[in-house]
Simulated scan of single mutants.
Amino acid sequence: MQCDYFDAGRCRSCTLMGSPYRDQVADKATRAAAALAGAGPGLRWLDPVTGPEAHFRNKAKLVVAGRAGAPTFGILDPGGRGVDLRRCGLYEPGLAVTFDPLHRVVSALGIEPYDVPARRGELKHLIVTHSPDGEHLVRFVVRSPEAVALLRAALPEVTAALPSARVVTVNVLPEHKAVLEGDTEVVLTDDTHLTMRLPGATLLLGPRSFFQTNTRVATALYAQAAAWADHLSPTTVLDLYCGVGGFALHLAAPGRRVVGVETSAEAVGAATAGAQLNGLGSPEVEFTTGDATQDLPGAAPELVVVNPPRRGLGADLTAWLDAGDSRHLVYSSCHLGSLARDLGAMPSWRPVEARVFDMFPQTTHLETAVLLERR
């Protein structure tokens, strides 16, 4: 992949830019195998799953900078000035086409971009998600409630400029700190969820919902977990860190009960609605709000699926899994270090099959899924 921004030194986020994609994937597979070399003998590695090396991101997290009437959408340079990246080649074509219409709307509104060095201004970020159906979830991250009123009044202009905007929200982040969003989310549209129609299941994404940034590779990840489950034929499945139900809804099958646990009540609501959309309901599939490290069932499920954040499972959950009676475990990880540490803390489990999913081309990041069985 060639990138004018990278070549000009304006953006260096893609640390592997210029490296042949085949070499990137091979290096990731080598690093994954080395990281898990101590997890036990006999681990079989399936061929890595890849997608396009460009135009793969379904979500844009754009810093808004510049000045009122002439904003930049992209990143900040070391001095805190905006670098416009609307022509970045990482985004899906259906996502990239939203940037110019939204730029025209923001410019016409005259809303002042937030100036990080000066700590003044209003509009901080623009976050846009693209669905397989060509629809969008658009989030404006602002500093004050006054901007919420401004954007609410401007909703007709936003939807006229971008008719595919199914969900439009405003997030309020009053503090000056290096985070993407605040605690307050105001939905401006009648629709509150973006439909993500995948081959194996349809998911519903709320404004704060997590979904893998690469739809094509995420589809393969869910399919791999479903294939492992279908081979094992468990009657009970526990999906921890279930989010909006990506794994749970793909693993649902006749004669199988799937329970998902997630801390976010919003995500659990979206997962429950997603189950209904897929024609599933209790007791086949059930989602509950709780802490995956604490709110655990008494009876051991036959299969456990975990998809934790980068920090991994933690001591309490690895201890529970290691001491339990579940027969199989699927661990999906975005961080090799925490994955290797967690597997080392669970000596009762033996990894039998693993696969690298290249969710993040042009970077060193990768997703790894591992199937384990009780020793």
Results as ranks from 00 to 15, higher is better:
2 Q>M: 09
4 D>T: 14
18 G>F: 11
18 G>W: 09
24 Q>D: 05
34 A>F: 09
39 A>G: 12
50 T>P: 02
69 G>V: 07
69 G>C: 07
70 A>V: 01
78 P>W: 15
88 C>A: 11
89 G>V: 07
92 E>S: 14
97 V>T: 11
106 V>L: 15
112 E>K: 15
115 D>A: 02
123 L>Y: 01
126 L>P: 02
126 L>H: 04
128 V>D: 05
132 P>R: 02
139 R>N: 13
151 L>E: 08
159 T>V: 13
162 L>Y: 02
169 T>Y: 00
175 E>G: 04
180 L>N: 15
181 E>N: 02
186 V>G: 01
191 D>S: 07
207 P>E: 00
213 T>C: 08
213 T>P: 11
214 N>L: 13
221 L>T: 12
224 Q>M: 14
225 A>N: 00
225 A>S: 06
230 D>R: 15
243 G>H: 00
253 A>D: 12
259 V>L: 14
262 E>I: 04
264 S>P: 06
271 A>Y: 00
275 A>N: 03
281 G>H: 09
284 E>I: 08
288 T>C: 11
291 D>S: 09
292 A>G: 11
300 A>I: 03
301 P>G: 05
309 P>F: 12
313 L>D: 06
314 G>C: 08
317 L>P: 04
322 D>A: 07
328 H>P: 06
342 D>T: 08
343 L>P: 01
347 P>S: 06
350 R>W: 10
350 R>N: 06
351 P>S: 13
368 T>L: 13
372 L>I: 05
374 R>D: 03
